[in-house]
């Protein structure tokens, strides 16, 4: 029987060593991702939100095997992929693809669009043969104009460059697409073009997606379920509409409260959460959020709350809520 989930993440952590002194000895660690577990169901769009530096990109790179995990496991469609070597990973590479925030930085300026987009196919087939028909087809699918294959990335606008990145990710017909802030660098009118394309491609290619973003408005519209990260830890998971209309974790509530609503008649006057996210090199003990939390109790200062089920598929990590 096929599994309902495509991706399972179990206790995933990443500690980046911090070097110091003249000899560059390891003097500490940044716990960028801290014991994160969740699942993504087949066909789902799963959103991961949180403020910059909370570990979203690091988590995504570990899931795709682009960065080794310090501990924990990633299970893709029933197979554990965390411990695979390059050769063993190859079939999974084809099935798991990524698009980045910065389409410019991720596209080789000296190669034509056709060559960039066709490259994954040539690597997968281990042949130097050109693959013009398939390239033309995928370029058309993502909405690039005729003749784009022979042009260079710099000849395209920001939105079109993101389309090139999407074409490169989809040419191998993956099952899973990780989108790491794919529209954050784009203007709002262009963001909508790319989001519309992603929604369309999700259906057309039967994709399962993980959408990483700090833009809470976009995530609310796009995603089925949403996870919220704070200082490396997953603090809440729930169905998008549920989570936005009834946030459980005080941090989720603060985030949602802080979204500027494009409606002048509902101006807020409250300050929202006080302070800022502390550095992950020196996280507070207990609940990482306790330094900013209006609901904290004594227990929050020394005991890390576990992410526990709260019914209706919701999870939250808070001693009070």
């Amino acid at each position: 029987m096929p599994l309902p989930e495509l991706l399972t993440v179990e206790g995933l952590s990443k500690v980046f060593p911090v070097k110091g002194g003249v000899f560059g000895k390891i003097v500490g660690g940044i716990r960028a991702v801290d014991d994160v577990s969740f699942r993504i169901m087949k066909g789902e769009v799963f959103g991961m939100v949180g403020e910059s530096g909370c570990g979203k990109t690091t988590l995504g790179r570990m899931i795709l095997g682009l960065l080794p995990a310090s501990s924990g496991r990633v299970i893709f469609d029933g197979d554990e992929i965390t411990s695979l070597d390059r050769a063993e990973m190859r079939p999974f590479r084809r099935r798991m693809q990524i698009i980045f925030q910065d389409p410019v930085g991720s596209l080789n300026p000296r190669k034509t669009v056709g060559s960039i987009v066709g490259e994954p196919l040539r690597v997968a087939r281990r042949s130097g043969e050109s693959v013009p028909a398939e390239v033309e087809e995928i370029l058309r699918t993502v909405g690039l104009p005729e003749g784009s294959a022979h042009r260079y990335p710099h000849e395209f606008s920001g939105g079109q460059r993101q389309r090139i990145g999407i074409a490169r990710a989809l040419i191998l017909r993956p099952d899973f697409l990780l989108a790491d802030e794919p529209v954050s660098a784009l203007d709002v009118s262009i963001q909508a073009q790319i989001l519309t394309l992603l929604v369309d491609l999700k259906t057309r290619f039967s994709l399962t997606m993980m959408f990483i973003s700090h833009d809470l408005r976009v995530v609310r519209s796009l995603c089925d379920r949403v996870g919220v990260m704070y200082l490396g830890r997953l603090v809440e998971v729930g169905a998008a509409e549920e989570l936005y209309s009834r946030p459980m974790h005080p941090y989720t509530e603060a985030l949602i409260e802080a979204i500027p609503e494009p409606d002048p008649s509902i101006r807020r006057r409250s300050e929202g959460a006080e302070g800022e996210m502390p550095s992950p090199s020196d996280p507070p003990p207990g609940c990482h959020f306790h330094t900013r939390c209006p609901l904290r109790i004594d227990r929050c200062f020394h005991e890390i709350p576990a992410l526990t089920p709260r019914g209706e598929g919701r999870l939250a990590a808070c001693h009070v809520r």
């Binding site: 009118s189 073009q193 989001l195 929604v199 494009p262």
Partner: peptide, 11 residues
Amino acid sequence: LPTPGRRSFHA
């Protein structure tokens, strides 16, 4: 601007 509850984006 994204509309809550609607997975369509007006470009």
